[in-house]
Structure formats: structure tokens, C-alpha cells
Amino acid sequence: MFSRRIVGWCVDLTMEESLIIRAFDQATALRRPKSGLIVHSDQGGQYFGKVFQKRLDKWACRQSMAEKDNPY
């Protein structure tokens, strides 16, 4: 099941790992997802960061990434 509701977002001057971690933490605090959640993103380097990967592991999320230069 899914929702079109935005559940986690953050803005900053730069696109660093800490930015997506803040948005992810906001979303997980609000929705408390079950294990197996699929987190889809592009192949930006911040999504490969160690801290973000630990967050995915903590929530037992599966990571999905689009092909390079393809947002779908």
C-alpha cells in the first residue's frame, strides 16, 4: 500500500547525506514502517553513505535505485 502524502522532506543549500537522513528520519518517525519497505532513489552518492545505509538496515528496508540519469 502507498500514499501520495509527503511524509518526510528537507531542504538545504547542498545535497549531502545529512539532508536525506533528516528527511528519512522524519518519514520513519511519522509512519513507523514495517520491515521490507522499499526505498527508491536515484544513484546520488548520498544514498550510498554509511550513515544512510545504517538507517536502512535499522528499519530493514530494501534499497531500489533507478538507472543513471533515469528518475524512474
Rank of each mutant, 00 (worst) to 15 (best):
S3G: 11
W59T: 10
I38Q: 01
M1V: 15
F48W: 09
D69S: 12
I6S: 03
D42G: 09
F48L: 06
I21A: 08
C61G: 04
L56P: 05
D69G: 12
D57A: 15
M1G: 14
N70C: 09
Q46P: 02
E16D: 15
W59I: 15
P71K: 02
F48Y: 12
N70S: 08
N70H: 11
G36Y: 04
C10A: 15
L19M: 10
G44E: 04
D42M: 01
A27D: 05
L19C: 06
G45I: 10
F48T: 13
G49W: 02
A23S: 13
T28D: 02
Q46R: 05
V39N: 09
V51A: 15
L19Y: 07
Y47L: 01
S18V: 05
P71D: 04
D12C: 07
R22Y: 03
F2R: 14
R22K: 15
A27H: 04
C61I: 03
R32C: 11
V39S: 01
K54H: 08
R4M: 13
W9T: 04
E67C: 12
A23Q: 06
A60C: 08
S41E: 04
D57E: 15
N70G: 00
E17N: 08
S64Q: 11
K54Q: 15
R22T: 11
V51G: 04
E67V: 03
K34C: 05
V11H: 09
S18R: 14
M1S: 12
M1L: 13
D25K: 14
Y47Q: 06
W59Y: 15
V7I: 14
G49T: 07
V7S: 01
T14Y: 09
P71F: 00
L56V: 05
D25F: 00
F2E: 13
N70Y: 09
W9M: 07
I6A: 10
Y47W: 07
F24P: 07
M65A: 02
A23T: 04
E17F: 00
F2G: 07
